[in-house]
């Protein structure tokens, strides 16, 4: 793809001076972030710190108030559609239509993403999340966990290079969680870039290579997970999210 220069080639996500305000309330107050290709980054932070907003802005669901976002070197301002093709997203909402079957949902998203060989791809992905027997059942008749699995399948249909997981593990059982990470790693030979938010420090520490702590719209801590254990992370977390009086 053109437009990407060699310096930013290895960067999946580059964020410069990102702010997002709702009216006069600043939710993100100047975020700078670089995520390398294949890296996994976990974002911690208390409620209202701006984690979800950050992910939504990265996913181009929300427009930033100011700042620049490059997805694989593509500026989301003027190359939004190409950038969106590289992004997959899983949140606590499934983005699935309850009145359609799993197959119809997946087929719909395949069309939106111009996925070639739709039928084959759907079979493949539904196999991966272990939902083949439920393929032609209406989504609203399935359990929450099953819906989450189909939602994961939905997010991976177009083989995105960058995965955004917003509290994706809440509501998943252990088995489904394991399956999620398996599915994330499985395809393309190349590792996916993963940015996730979670409240569970232990899980985050386990799955990510880098930790970000977000508090009141700014990144207050950044560090590798390699040399860090849970108590150390907890200490860092508490000192980085101290509430002002």
């Amino acid at each position: 793809m053109g437009g990407a220069n060699t310096a930013s080639q290895a960067l999946s996500v580059k964020v410069e001076g990102l702010t997002k305000s709702f009216g006069n309330r600043l939710t993100l107050r100047g975020i700078d972030l670089e995520v390398k290709q294949g890296e996994s980054v976990v974002i911690f932070g208390p409620n209202g710190a701006g984690k979800t907003t950050l992910l939504k802005v990265l996913a181009t669901i929300m427009n930033p108030t100011s700042g620049r976002i490059l997805i694989d070197g593509l500026d989301v301002k003027n190359q939004a559609e190409q950038a969106r093709r590289r992004i997959g997203i899983v949140t606590h909402n499934t983005f699935l239509y309850g009145n359609l079957t799993a197959y119809e949902n997946l087929d719909f998203y395949c069309r939106l993403y111009d996925v070639p060989g739709r039928q084959q791809r759907i079979q493949e992905i539904i196999e991966m999340v272990g939902m083949t027997p439920r393929l032609h059942q209406r989504v609203s008749t399935l359990s929450r966990g099953m819906q989450q699995r189909i939602s994961i399948a939905r997010s991976l249909l177009h083989k995105p290079a960058i995965m955004l997981l917003d509290e994706a593990e809440t509501g998943l059982d252990q088995q489904a969680t394991a399956m999620l990470w398996e599915a994330l790693a499985a395809e393309g030979g190349k590792r996916r870039t993963i940015i996730l938010t979670t409240h569970n420090l232990e899980r985050g520490l386990k799955v990510a290579e880098r930790v970000l702590i977000l508090d009141k719209g700014i990144i207050t801590y950044q560090g590798s997970t390699k040399a860090m254990n849970l108590p150390a992370l907890e200490r860092v977390y508490h000192s980085s999210t101290e509430n002002e009086p």
């Binding site: 669901i61 239509y97 939106l112």
Partner: peptide
């Protein structure tokens, strides 16, 4: 209304469609 349930509208917004 249908798009608001389960955040489907966001699903449309992240898809590569104008």
């Amino acid at each position: 209304v249908m798009e608001k349930e389960e955040g489907c509208f966001e699903g449309l917004m992240v898809a590569p469609v104008s």
